[in-house]
Design a protein around this nucleic acid. Sequence first.
DNA 1: GCTTGAGAGTTGAGTACTCAGCTTGTCAAG
DNA 2: CTTGACAAGCTGAGTACTCAACTCTCAAGC
Lengths: 247, 247
Amino acid sequence: MSQHAYLRIADDLRQRIIEGRLAPGDRVPSRHELAREHGVSDRVAVEAVRLLVAEGYVESRTGSGTFVRRRPEVKRLTRSWYRAHGRADSPFRADMVAQGRTGTWRSASDAGEATPGVAERLGIAEGDPVMVTRYIFLADGQPVMLSTSWEPLKLTRGTPVMLPEEGPYAGAGVVTRMRAIGQEVSLASEVVSARAVLADEAGRLDEPMGSIVMVVQRTYSGERPVETADIVVPVDRYELEYTIQVE
Amino acid sequence: MSQHAYLRIADDLRQRIIEGRLAPGDRVPSRHELAREHGVSDRVAVEAVRLLVAEGYVESRTGSGTFVRRRPEVKRLTRSWYRAHGRADSPFRADMVAQGRTGTWRSASDAGEATPGVAERLGIAEGDPVMVTRYIFLADGQPVMLSTSWEPLKLTRGTPVMLPEEGPYAGAGVVTRMRAIGQEVSLASEVVSARAVLADEAGRLDEPMGSIVMVVQRTYSGERPVETADIVVPVDRYELEYTIQVE
DNA sequence: GCTTGAGAGTTGAGTACTCAGCTTGTCAAG
DNA sequence: CTTGACAAGCTGAGTACTCAACTCTCAAGC
């Protein structure tokens, strides 16, 4: 099997978890116990536990112990052409309703200047004024997704939709809001990548450090880009489903 | 700034890399040097380097040293409805041509039985016979992507397309091959997730352990599912672009 | 019944080492 | 000029500890 002691211990624990001998919520033996059980030094046990934390099997709570992680059921976010129909509701709330959950969110908007990346995505100049809105999305009250949205102020300044979450179109979604000021949206581009969670994201999403998130760079456009957003989705909560029409 | 010594050292190195004082390919000071520079013990330096490895900034080569990682330029794989037009070529080769690179692949096919997950995706019974094909995709000769494909043998047995990479339709892509036996493909579903790379994937893709890959579960279907595949894409090589039609 | 404080247990971080296996540069022999 | 042996240096892994900060339990006191 594995050459190294810490891999052997990790294999053993992983097996116990998979077979159910260690159930979600159970406490894993402490590093002292593990070290004694396997006849190795403390540090080897620490390395083994660290590996399982990175793999998402267990989570450590300082002062309390290490516990088998309750894996939240992985839900699917449907991001397909036919979901984006011009309904007067946000796509997130619609997705949550489809899963039988309540979708809510909190947000805060600020005026700012376009960074190089955002400027390119919106087809505007670096430094142009934009409305930056930071969202945290909640499913049944639990934080599940983060998003930062940028809209060119050239389009929205002085209109009732300048602040995404205030006025008559509050919470209606980008497509509906842009339509209200005469900007038809016909395409959404989503560029998907993934990386390790950042410290502040981990805190806001209640995810352990080291866990993996997908980052979706979404841009809505009609004749020109009207909004772009970075959406941060933890992989242990959601997968993204795209439906592509062939021909 | 950071409370902990290992975070301070990591911050320092990260800054040096971002500012270019440590260029891609340069050797990072060894753990002994780092420990002495910062007046801490060896292990602290090891922890700092380990963090930067996880973040993808550096890569360690046993016996040789730790080096600032040459970040391969992140390319985009276009996975949109309008790319899937019924051309008699594989989508991968078309994508590579669009990037000005040559796309090739190696593959090996075997008959096997459907696992529970595959059976569900293909709408067949567990244990039903399937053709399993393992691919490794190369861009300009370098391995960049892995894929495992499953096709129900009930559909293809006895036809010229039973073996995906042999016969008159070798290398033509699933849509074309299925059409050749009267199976029209109208939809592709892609479920995107991400995780840490597995050991054998890391070896085959020449990626360091701990790096992150996206996993795309793609299913082609017409009246019924005709093929499903797991596609493994390293995030430091590719991002996935989906284009969604609104309304 | 409720609060509080002490103590045991746990993780995170650190010190100060050792050893095996690998890479690489040097330098002398052919 | 080439080749082989060798030493120096590096990472990965491990031993054997220490200390701070945190959590949890349980019993004493109100």
